[in-house]
Amino acid sequence: MLAVRGLRKSFGGRTVLDGFDLRVEPGEFVALLGPNGSGKSTALRCVVGLETPDGGEIDVSGNAAMVFQKIHLVGRRTALDNVCSGALGRLPLRRSLFCPHDVRDEAMRCLDRVGLADRALDRCARLSGGQQQRVAIARALCQRASVILADEPVSALDPQAAVQVMELLVDLAGEGMTVVAVLHQPELARNYAHRIVEMVAQ
C-alpha cells in the first residue's frame, strides 16, 4: 500500500508539487499522466527518498523500489550482479563484498521471473533496452519490494519491448504488488493501468 498526503516540493522557488495526494492499494496498477513539470517524477523520487519533500506525509507499507527511464544498471556488470545489488540494503557491509550464495539463488529466481535467467551472466551493456529494463525490475524484486515505482519505464524502449515491460508490471500488480508508473503514452496507460491519475503543471 502507498499513501501520499499533501505532498509539497519546490525547487528554487518553482513549485512542482503543491498538496499532492495519492493512495494505491496492493494489487493495483496506477498510471500517472501529465505534462512535463507536473511533478510526476518528483513525487516518485520523494517516496523513495531521492528527494526530500518540503511537506506532506508519505506512508509505504513494506519496501519501495524504483525503476528508471534511463534504467541505471551498471553496464559493465552481469545481469545477475545487478540483480544481487537489490539486496544490498539488507546485507551488512562485510557480507556485501561478494554476493552471498543465498542472495544469488534469490537473484536467479528474480531473473527467472522476468524471463531472463538465460542471460544471467551477460554484461548488462550487451542486453537490449527492454531486457535491461526487465533486469532493473528483477533488481526491484530482489529488493523484496512490495511497492514498485516506475518513472517512465518504457519511454526509451521500442513498442514490442514496451509492451513486454507493461505486461510484466501488470502481472506483478496481479500478484499483489502496488505499482505506480509515470507514463507519457495515454494509450499504454488505458490498456494496462487499473486507474489513471492526471497531474497538472503548477
Binding site: F68, H72, G89
Partner: peptide, 27 residues
C-alpha cells in the same frame, strides 16, 4: 544514475562505492 538506483535499495555509502562507482570507473 546507478548510484541513485542503489541508494533506493537501501545500500550504504561504502556499498554504493563498491557496487556502482568502482565497477563503472575501473577501466
Amino acid at each position: 544514475g546507478p548510484r541513485d538506483a542503489l541508494r533506493v535499495t537501501g545500500a550504504s555509502g561504502p556499498q554504493i562505492a563498491l557496487h556502482a562507482v568502482l565497477p563503472t570507473v575501473l577501466p
